[in-house]
């Protein structure tokens, strides 16, 4: 369904998709814990677990994208040639950059659970 990662836009956006899923889980989990059960401690613990899982997933995706970008082989970062290699490297490069932004986003979103100890 997703195709091979060398020629797939879906793979390129997997890391931000992890960010999106993490965001929804964190928001939904906190809403449920604060409104219906658990309270702030359960909410915060859940957020931190979800964050650890999301970060691990993003690291794996980022590593794969880095390998696909293959920067250290020719130090190419422009990817403007009409070749299969440049298309592969471009998708890897963009996927790697997106993984970095996604990791920052996930990290940012976990910070409130570090600092805020109440549901109020």
């Amino acid at each position: 369904m997703l195709g091979h990662r060398h020629s797939s836009l879906w793979h390129m956006i997997l890391a931000p998709t992890v960010w999106a899923v993490h965001f929804c889980v964190v928001y939904g989990w906190t809403a449920v814990q604060c409104a219906r059960a658990g309270g702030p401690d359960a909410a915060r613990t859940g957020v931190l677990i979800a964050t650890a899982v999301a970060l691990m997933a993003i690291v794996v995706l980022g590593w794969k994208a880095w390998r696909q970008w293959d920067y250290l082989d020719d130090f190419d970062y422009v990817h403007d040639q009409p070749t299969t290699e440049h298309r592969r490297e471009f998708l890897g490069h963009a996927g790697w950059l997106l993984a970095i932004v996604s990791a920052i986003g996930v990290g940012f979103n976990a910070l409130p659970a570090v600092f805020i100890r109440s549901c109020l």
């Binding site: 965001f23 906190t30 979103n109 805020i116």
Partner: peptide, 10 residues
């Protein structure tokens, strides 16, 4: 909840 606000602020 301020925890929720924090997510969106971040």
């Amino acid at each position: 909840p301020s925890l929720s606000l924090g997510f969106f602020s971040a």
